[in-house]
């Protein structure tokens, strides 16, 4: 490991002060620490967010859920089982058990890996990303591969999820990494259906407008007959071609609709 300084403040205010707009925030570290070891990122100073009690935990808020940014995947999986089972199911499938005990929702959302699971949940749920300075709608937050609306020194302190009437997340896991080769989150609200796709696009998570329109008028798998995902702009690599990912997008969306509850 190269030389750097690590601080571990106990409050959001102290973390913001420690970051000073230049240091790198460290969530659960399950992506960032391997990245540091490979020297793909070499910040001079890291500020660990794992010691901030006010950023952990799940609470009910205005008919939805507020999940602290430093809440680990395992705690989301167990803590939302009754209130938002589709989200609990998503969290329970991330990585492996040890990763789920460290990795956090705030870290995943901030990193916006194009194959990560949480961005799909946040976008399909119409979640609000709560930061140390403001609140940003998920629709405005995810800006492309590893790119978000976050500014330097800004910390995700929580994510607020509206709870849909029915929802399901279907993930086709890349067997080595456990990331989504493609993952589709379908959420049905009184106002309509939202469909978010991760793993497929070179621009990261996106809403599939054609499927949303079809499912909003008829929430059934057959509503997607004749609706195909556009393969242009989709990721093509040794794990799967763009056409394969486009095909998986449609298949997983149907599965999510049939299994939504």
């Amino acid at each position: 490991m190269y030389a750097f300084e690590l601080e571990r403040p106990g409050s959001v205010a102290d973390a913001v002060a420690a970051l000073g707009g230049e240091a790198q925030p460290l969530g659960g570290g399950q992506t960032l620490i391997p990245t540091l070891k490979a020297r793909l990122a070499m910040p001079e100073k890291l500020v660990s967010l794992t010691g901030i009690a006010e950023m952990k935990g799940i609470s009910s808020e205005g008919g939805g859920l507020r999940i602290g940014g430093a809440t680990c995947h395992a705690d989301v999986a167990s803590g939302t089982l009754a209130s938002y089972p589709a989200l609990a199911g998503l969290a329970a499938q991330i990585g492996d058990p040890a990763v789920r005990n460290r990795g956090t929702i705030g870290g995943s959302v901030a990193n916006n890996d194009p194959s990560a699971c949480y961005p799909a949940a946040a976008l399909a749920s119409g979640a609000t990303i709560i930061t140390s300075t403001r609140e940003v709608a998920a629709d405005e937050f995810f800006r492309g591969m590893f790119d978000t609306a976050l500014e330097d020194g800004e910390i995700i302190t929580g994510v607020r999820f509206p709870v849909p009437q029915r929802a399901s997340y279907q993930k086709f896991a890349q067997p080595a990494s456990r990331f989504a080769l493609v993952g589709v989150f379908v959420a049905q609200f009184a106002e309509g259906v939202r469909v978010a796709v991760t793993g497929a696009s070179g621009d990261g998570v996106f809403r599939w407008a054609e499927a949303e329109a079809a499912l909003s008028s008829n929430f059934a798998p057959e509503a997607l007959d004749g609706v195909t995902a556009d393969a242009s702009g989709m990721i093509s690599d040794l794990h799967g071609s763009a056409a394969y990912r486009a095909h998986l997008t449609a298949v997983l969306t149907r599965r999510a609709v049939s299994q939504a509850h």
Binding site: L6, G29, I33, S48, T50, D96, A98, N101, R102
Partner: peptide, 21 residues
Amino acid sequence: GACTVHVDGKAVKACTMFALE
């Protein structure tokens, strides 16, 4: 996973957290 230890009763990878944490 060869470095798996328990921290406050939870299994974690000791190579993927800092001692200070």
